[in-house]
Computed example of a mutant assay.
Amino acid sequence: MFTGIVTDMGTVLSVRPLAQGQLHRLKIGCSYDRATIAEGASIACSGVCMTVVDTGEEDGRTWFAVDAAAETLRLTTVGNWKRDTRINLERALKIGDELGGHIVSGHVDGIATVVSRDDLPDMARFVLRVPPLLSRFIAQKGSVALDGVSLTVNEVRDDDFSVLIIPHTLHVTTFGKLAVGDGQNIEIDTMARYAARLVERG
């Protein structure tokens, strides 16, 4: 479980196909202390909850390895990651930690595509488009996680919605380099998911 508050920007150091391409072993560089990363721990990698299978140090920097299965490669942006891809990282929530964002599971629902970016004096405004099946879960002033970042929805129009990103978030996450056409792993708010299910069941 996570909160959508990014604590580091990692870098993909290598991608190695396994199991005839049905599994990818990703080696990710980070600034976390190696001693604090246990094998089997969960780390959200651009919003995707992944399990640490190995750790190490290289050129004075910590790295950890994760395996991405075929379903993850198909449904998220992980399948497009390559060496030097920058990703948002968040360690798993601990009891007693501050809930600075909203409850995020790390189970990505699909990919949202950036359709516009406006750099304003004090922030940046992004408009993203989601698959039609997901748009009904997105509401004005509701929460959404994009590449693991907890955000508040600004406006909604059909399958498009907008978010406003403050300078701090642009600096400490991958949003600073985000451009039109880029895909973002999207996780809808858990409350919206259950509310929709209750309505469906009458």
Rank of each mutant, 00 (worst) to 15 (best):
R197H: 07
G47P: 00
G4W: 10
V180L: 08
V199G: 01
L93R: 06
T190Q: 13
A124Q: 09
D8R: 08
R34V: 15
A44H: 09
S162Y: 07
R125W: 03
R86P: 11
L198K: 04
A41W: 03
G56R: 02
L75F: 10
V130G: 04
A68L: 05
V12R: 06
F2N: 10
A196F: 05
L75T: 13
F126T: 07
P167Q: 02
L128S: 01
D118Y: 04
V52R: 03
G21M: 14
A112V: 10
F175C: 05
G60N: 00
R129W: 00
V199S: 05
R193S: 07
T72G: 05
D147C: 11
P131W: 07
T174K: 07
I166D: 08
I43C: 07
Q22A: 15
N154I: 06
G60C: 00
V130M: 03
T190N: 02
A139R: 03
L134W: 12
R157G: 01
G47D: 02
C45L: 06
I5G: 04
M9R: 15
G148A: 12
F161W: 11
D182T: 01
G106R: 02
A192K: 00
L120S: 03
I28Y: 02
V127T: 07
S162H: 09
L120N: 12
I28A: 11
P17C: 10
T190L: 14
E200S: 11
A38E: 14
H107K: 12
T51N: 03
I165T: 08
L18K: 13
I87N: 08
R193P: 03
I28C: 10
A179F: 00
T174H: 06
I166E: 07
R86F: 04
K141C: 10
G56Q: 05
V115S: 14
G142M: 13
N80T: 13
E71D: 13
S116T: 13
D160L: 14
G181Q: 09
R125Y: 04
E90Q: 10
T51F: 02
I186E: 06
